[in-house]
Nucleic acid binder design. Structure first.
Length: 205
DNA sequence: CGCTGGATTCGA
DNA sequence: CGAATCCAGCGC
């Protein structure tokens, strides 16, 4: 695969306005597919095309970090739409979310995979922990606005076909574990894992 | 103040 | 399949 030239800041498509995020996360999540996640990291531009997302809905959603109410870590989730929610999991991976809904309603969209457009040689974007490392996103970006540098999301080409599955890694969430809240660009190979019914190497033909 | 377990990834 | 690696959240 050819490496795409880093886009120059002036050539970037328009930024998605905060109003784009001011609706339920299960609407924003599929709408974010195909959009461009852009990071200015140490003066260098990094970017990826979003190809996989998950929606986390509210305090009732047992998989959402806000399920146990507002705490120090989750206070960002209650902030205004169009801000970043970045947190550490498993002691080593930083995961990037876009906060949705009006301020006070803890909705967020987790970005699980991007096709890298501008990133360090050898970096990978297929996985929520990998893409933050590739783009240089960290907890320092938590609560930052997504409508201006150094962290922004810009309009990209629409995605023709969206595939929907249950979310990954939330088996503890009771009935919410099976909710169809994971969205993938079915034309992209750069997803964090294959869709559920394609999992299993022992398929008979 | 100590204990538990992750919205994951990598290597054996 | 388990280690890596750390801190939020909760219980005492």
């Amino acid at each position: 695969m050819p490496i795409t030239t880093p886009p120059s800041p002036s050539a970037l498509p328009p930024v998605l306005p905060a109003s784009f995020y001011g609706r339920p996360a299960d609407e924003v999540a599929p709408a974010l597919l195909g959009q461009l996640l852009v990071v200015r990291h140490d003066g260098e531009l990094r970017a990826g095309r979003i190809v996989e997302t998950e929606a986390y809905l509210c305090e009732a959603d047992l998989a959402c970090h806000a399920a146990r109410g507002r705490t120090r870590r989750t206070s960002t989730l209650y902030g205004p739409p169009g801000t970043a929610y970045v947190y550490l999991v498993y002691g080593m991976h930083e995961l990037f979310n876009a906060v949705c809904q009006p301020e006070g309603e803890p909705h967020a969209v987790l970005v699980r995979a991007v096709e890298l457009l501008a990133a360090p040689e050898g970096a990978r974007g297929d996985g929520p922990g990998r893409l933050t490392r590739a783009l240089g996103i960290s907890r320092a970006d938590d609560a930052r606005s997504l409508t201006r540098p150094p962290l922004s999301i810009h309009a990209g080409a629409p995605v023709a076909d969206v595939r929907v599955t249950r979310r990954v890694g939330v088996g503890y969430a009771g009935v919410w574990a099976d909710a169809p809240l994971r969205f993938l660009d079915s034309a992209s190979g750069a997803v964090s894992r294959p869709p559920a019914h394609a999992i299993g190497s022992g398929r008979r033909a």
